[in-house]
Every structure is written in structure tokens, then in C-alpha cells.
Design a protein around this nucleic acid. Structure first.
Lengths: 216, 216
DNA sequence: CCGATAGATGAATGAGCATTCCATATTGTA
DNA sequence: TACAATATGGAATGCTCATTCATCTATCGG
């Protein structure tokens, strides 16, 4: 008997999670269509096929939905990136791996990236909102991860001496703007992942033709 | 007599412009502090030291203020960039000039760039709003300008064969993310313009140390 | 099958805010 | 100075939501 109740409560647990997930998916669809401010709770509830009151059983506010949504995804991306750079390949290869992983992730999470790229700057949130901070932190974690890669590469002589953080920043800028335009113009014409190889080569070898390295 | 009236109306004209400008400046301050949605017309009016009704004599809506503001600046930037690339220096030098001009502009228009960088993606506006389109066009114009530069450089052999538009996009991403972080963290510690030289070198020579160009 | 508990519902509430509108003040004309 | 005409002021209007809550409904143990 005890067992039966346990199992039932497990089922309940699962169902709870599933519903929560439903709502997050609906929110993702809506937010990515219209942005945070132009999406109403009524719309989210309708898309998720729940009543508004019900939505509030899962999330305490609209902002809470948004935070949960973005945070989960950013964390996932960060985890993937960490995984991809755990190997002991040369730094150069790891850098290429980072590109691939991020592009692939964007490819598979197009709707989310609409939200992310447009909001990664987070200014609508201003300093006050806890949100900006939280997501911002993960973004900085990405920057740091790559910055460390670059440090590594400098040590092994693969990369020339640069400021790792600035370079990482520039690197992410390249990636994000590429992703962003691709999303905006996204016919399924060309694969995003395909651009990865060329981006890696631009970053490593530069645009110039001269084989003499400038002294800087 | 006719002349006197004419002069007076000229003065009126000037005063009108001056007031309009006042309002735009106030709006710039407010929008850059709190973003579009969290800035109220009351706040803008107060900051500009006008009553709300008066503000509406100059702009037909809140969105109109925003558009005017962003458009004017983006146009100015575009003009500066065009000017800087009119010369007949080698493409490489023009590219460096673009970097300098954009960084200097960001330096001098910090408040504006807060708005611009956070909104350049324009997603809060969605497709419907005419706004997104208008500003988006200018952004693409920037991309095109640099893409043409790159084409030029490829022709002269200064640059290797790349997709000009993709490269220009990556280039802008680099610039924007650098500008953005600088604005966020802006103590007046280091000059933004100083990063220009190094960004140019990263773009042209890449991160790698090997002097052999990869085959791609 | 019954009462009880937990879950779901969506209309009602209330706050925020863009926009309007008319009363007041300022400027221009004769 | 008096009479428009024009500019300014800011309270009042009306709308859009996020959030709440009184009311149903399904589920559960016995």
C-alpha cells in the first residue's frame, strides 16, 4: 500500500514536470515571436492550453517564466561547451569545437536563440532585475571558458600573445552576429554549422594575405 | 516689415528645433537608463522640463521619439563611415579607419550606444513595427559598406578570398561586442579607441602563430 | 459510493501608462 | 491696449495586462 501511494506520487511528480515543461515550451514560442513585453500571460496560457490561474501554480510571475526558460538553456549550452573542451586536443582544435557546438546548439534552438541574442545584452531589464545578473553571469562564464582556452594556446605557442579576454569577447561577437543574421534570414538554405569551418579559419588566420606577421 | 516677420519666424523655427532637441536628449538619457518599455512619457517630459502635452506637439508618440532618436544617430554614424572610406588608401587602411570611427563614435555616444547595442537586434519590435525595418536597413548598410571594402581588398590581393558579407558580419560582431562590454564595465580606465589597433590586427592576421596559411 | 483534499478555472481587480483635451498662458498683430 | 492665434500645462480618459481569488472539478483514501 505504501508502495502504491509512492508510485502514484511519482507519477504526479512526473506529470507536474511535464506540465511545467509544456508551459515553458509555449512561452518559448511566444517570447520568440513577440518578445517579452509584447507577450501576455493570456497568450502563454492559451498556447499551453491551461488557464491563467494554472500557469501561476507553476511559476510565480511572468518574469519567473522567462528566467527559468533562458537560464535552463544557457546552462545547457555552457555544459555542452565544457564537455567539448574537456578533451586534450590542441587548443586550436578545442576552439573549433566551441564554434561547432555553439552553432549546432543555435541550429537546434532557433526559437530560443531569438530570445537570447536579442536579450543577451539584457538592457530592458536594467540593473535592478535579478534576471540580467543571472544570465549575464553565464554569458561571462562562456567568455571565460574561451579566454582560458586562449591562454592555454598562448602557452603552447599555438596562438600569439593577445589579451585572452578581449579576444574571447571578439570571438563571441563574431559567432553571435553570424548566428543572429542566420536566424533572421533563415530560409533553410544554408546550414549554420557549415559556416563554422570558415569562421575558425578567419579567427586563426585572419583576413590578410601577407604571410609576414605584423609586429603589432 | 516682411523681413522682420521673416526673421521672427526664423527664430521660431530655431526655437522649435532647440526644444525638439531637448526632448530627444532627455529621451536618450531615460531610454539608455531604463530601456524603452520601462521609460514612461511622464519621465521623459519631466526630464526635458516640459509637460506631457507639450511633448506630444513635437512627437506623435513614444515610439516616434525612439525612432527619431535612433535613426538620427545611426545615420550620423553611417555618414561618418562613408566619409572615412572615401579616401584612396588601401582597403586594409580603410578597414582600420572603420574601426577607429566606430569606436570613437561609441566613445562619444555612450548613452546612445547602450540603446543601440541592446536593441540593434530589434526583437522587442517584432516584424510589424516599421521601426525594426528602418533601423535594420541602416545596419545592413553598414554591413554592406564594409563588405564592399572587403571585395575591394580581395581584388587588390590584400585580402584572401572570403565571402565578403559573412566576413563583414563577423567583423561587426567583433566590434559590437567589444563596444558593448566596454560600455557595461565602463570605468574610464581604458580608452575604447585604444582597442582599435589590436582589433584590426586580430582581424587581419588572426590569432594563430603559424605563418603558413591554411588551405581552408 | 462519499466526503475530503488538491488542482484547475477564468472573470474580476487594480495598477500603470500612453494619449487626449480643454483650460490657461504666452506671443504676435494692429 | 485689446484681440486673435498659438503654445503649454497637466488632469482625466481609456486601455492593456499581470495577478488574485472565489468557485468549480477531478482525484483519492476508505
Amino acid at each position: 500500500m505504501k508502495v502504491a501511494i509512492d508510485q502514484r506520487s511519482q507519477r504526479k511528480q512526473r506529470e507536474y514536470e511535464a506540465r511545467r515543461e509544456e508551459i515553458l515550451l509555449a512561452a518559448e514560442r511566444k517570447f520568440s515571436q513577440n518578445g517579452f513585453f509584447k507577450t501576455s500571460m493570456a497568450e502563454i496560457a492559451e498556447d499551453a492550453q491551461f488557464a491563467m490561474g494554472t500557469v501561476y501554480r507553476f511559476f510565480k510571475s511572468k518574469e519567473d517564466i522567462y528566467i527559468s526558460l533562458v537560464e535552463a538553456k544557457v546552462e545547457e549550452l555552457l555544459r555542452l561547451l565544457e564537455e567539448a573542451t574537456q578533451s586534450r586536443l590542441p587548443a586550436q582544435e578545442k576552439l573549433r569545437a566551441v564554434i561547432q557546438v555553439k552553432l549546432a546548439f543555435a541550429d537546434q534552438n532557433r526559437a530560443f536563440f531569438r530570445i537570447y541574442v536579442s536579450e543577451w545584452s539584457g538592457f530592458e531589464w536594467t540593473v535592478k532585475s535579478a534576471f540580467g545578473e543571472r544570465v549575464w553571469k553565464r554569458y561571462l562564464a562562456q567568455i571565460d571558458l574561451v579566454a582560458n582556452l586562449i591562454k592555454e594556446g598562448i602557452k603552447t605557442g599555438e596562438f600569439r600573445k593577445v589579451n585572452p579576454k578581449d579576444t574571447s569577447l571578439a570571438f563571441h561577437g563574431m559567432l553571435n552576429s553570424t548566428i543572429y543574421l542566420w536566424i533572421l534570414q533563415s530560409g533553410p538554405k544554408e546550414s549554420l554549422v557549415d559556416k563554422g569551418k570558415w569562421l575558425g579559419s578567419l579567427l586563426l588566420d585572419g583576413l590578410g594575405t601577407s604571410t609576414l606577421k605584423r609586429s603589432m
